[in-house]
């Protein structure tokens, strides 16, 4: 009987200590949160891969996936040059700002 009572007292005491510890822990957490501001964590930037000497170079234009045959491409270049020559001739005939930068129908400039 004495042993039982002793075990019971120890258990009750242990539970009391545990409850007190739990209460203290939760009370301090509640009281701290509104007063102390959260520490400002340094902002983590999204790190882009750096390119030596080439950060200012814009991304290359998206090229069409389907390439035209080389003969067609050469013909397009020739037509572009012819149109540019015609535009230059037109400027030399009537030299104005508008004529100088008049846009042709070339697919290379549209």
């Amino acid at each position: 009987m004495e042993m039982f009572l002793m075990a019971l007292c120890v258990s009750v005491f242990g539970m009391g200590v545990a409850a007190a510890a739990f209460g203290a822990a939760t009370r301090s957490e509640r009281s701290d949160s509104p007063e102390r501001p959260q520490p400002q964590l340094p902002l983590v930037k999204a790190i882009a891969p750096t390119r030596f000497f080439s950060d200012t170079i814009p991304a290359p234009p998206v090229m069409p996936t389907k390439q035209v045959p080389i003969e067609v491409l050469l013909l397009q270049i020739e037509n572009h040059v012819r149109m540019e020559q015609a535009a230059a001739e037109s400027f030399l005939e009537f030299p104005t700002q508008a004529n100088l930068h008049h846009k042709t129908n070339s697919p290379f400039v549209n």
Binding site: E84, Q85, E89, L92, L100, H101
Partner: peptide, 22 residues
Amino acid sequence: GHRLQLLQTMWLREVQRTVQVH
């Protein structure tokens, strides 16, 4: 002289486009 003027004009038009793109 005409060829020089022609090529100069074409070159300037090309530079203008490059400036616009960049």
